[in-house]
Design a binder for these strands. Structure first.
Length: 366
DNA sequence: CACGCGTGGGT
DNA sequence: TACCCAAGCGT
């Protein structure tokens, strides 16, 4: 081994040691983690809980995940229980968390694991084959739940690494280099804690804006600090701007307060979720034409407008409301008032319903 | 491989 | 306010 490689390796080991020491001193209590005491006693986290939390945490903040995680493990304490649940119930429990294909893949994954004895694969390759588990999640589960020396690379780790080594290459192109650097950091012992340490560091110290470098355990190793502007890492390519789409939504209310709903196709935007009838979302607002697009004729009254921002477009919907007295049209169903809060309604649809009938989506007693 | 895919909080 | 972005995956 060349001398400079030895030096680099030693530097990596120093950084890893500092990160682990910091992790021990700043342990964050999270619903899916075991206590440091239990870990010291040799206990391992439950792979089911690690898997569930990691899927929920994909592109989603810790705070948003906590209550959903608790609800899920309360309803379905293990993978067999989740496999036994109807997909519809899983979609309802996921409603509001976003990226709904995750919920469908979660259920498919649970079915697969349960059919193979109820145990998750204990290695990265086996995990990677399961639906909804990509490179990051496979590595995270392997390292955290099974103590495998996997290179866990998420957005936090990308930020920490590009700063630590002042990588000015745009992110998409820099990923292989980042991965190689992380592989060099992975310690022989406690690979899962190292992964969590780097993610915790990215979430609390090495933040996208105004990083708290003075509190950082690896500030002495960090190249970006020397530049005086660690915020400029990672370098990202400019994003395309968001188009605006428009449409109209129709909230039909029966005399007993039931609302007319329908299920969206399983694939695509809000796949498998429930919605109120709407026009297409590119439709122009042509005044009188919008109410004509309702699922059936009624005395539609425009009650307001809602705005919602998705990942790749913004949406404005004119909201119409009518009292109706009829059977549900083909493909639609009535949902009683006390059931609305339990439906698989994405946030945008709750906004629509609230705009027509304030309070309608709040939980109410039977 | 670039894009489609939600939502809420931070600045 | 208007961005920015978060413990990514599937196609």
């Amino acid at each position: 081994m060349a001398l400079h490689e030895q030096t680099r390796k030693a530097a990596s080991e120093d950084s890893a040691s500092r990160l682990l020491a910091w992790y021990d001193a700043h342990h964050r209590e999270l619903p899916w983690r075991i206590t440091p005491r239990a870990a010291a006693g040799g206990a391992r986290p439950d792979p089911y809980r690690i898997w569930l939390s990691e899927v929920m945490l994909q592109q989603t903040t810790v705070e948003a995940v906590k209550s959903y995680f608790r609800a899920f493990v309360g309803k379905w304490p293990d993978v067999k229980a989740l496999a036994a649940a109807p997909t519809e119930d899983v979609m309802k429990a996921w409603a509001g968390l976003g990226y709904y294909s995750r919920a469908r893949n979660l259920k498919a994954c649970a079915d697969l694991v349960a059919s193979q004895g109820g145990r998750f694969p204990d290695n990265e390759g086996g995990l990677r084959e399961l639906p909804g588990i990509g490179a990051y999640t496979a590595a995270a589960i392997a390292a955290i739940a099974f103590d495998r020396p996997a290179a866990v690379v998420d957005g936090n780790v990308e930020r920490v690494i590009t700063r630590l080594y002042s990588i000015a290459t745009p992110l998409s192109e820099a990923k292989p280099e980042i991965r190689a650097l992380v592989e060099r950091l992975v310690p022989r012992t406690r690979p899962g804690d190292l992964a969590q340490a780097m993610m915790d560091l990215g979430a609390t110290i090495c933040t996208p804006k105004r990083p708290r470098c003075m509190l950082c355990p690896v500030r002495e190793d960090c190249s970006a600090i020397l530049s005086g502007d660690p915020e400029r890492f990672p370098v990202r390519l400019p994003r395309a701007d968001k188009p605006l789409r428009r449409g109209a939504a129709f909230v039909a209310e029966r005399a007993d307060g039931a609302l007319l709903l329908r299920k969206r196709p399983d694939k695509g935007l809000l796949g498998g979720m429930t919605e109120v009838p709407t026009t297409g979302w590119t439709a122009r607002i042509d005044g009188a034409t919008t109410a004509d697009a309702a699922p059936f004729p009624a005395d539609w009254r425009r009650t307001g407008q809602i705005a919602h921002v998705f990942t790749h477009f913004a949406l404005e919907l004119d909201v119409f409301h009518a009292q109706v007295k009829s059977d549900a049209p083909e493909g639609h169903f009535w949902s009683l008032a006390h059931d609305i809060s339990g439906e698989a309604l994405p946030t945008v649809m709750k906004k629509v319903i609230e705009a027509a009938i304030p309070g309608a989506t709040k939980a109410r007693p039977k």
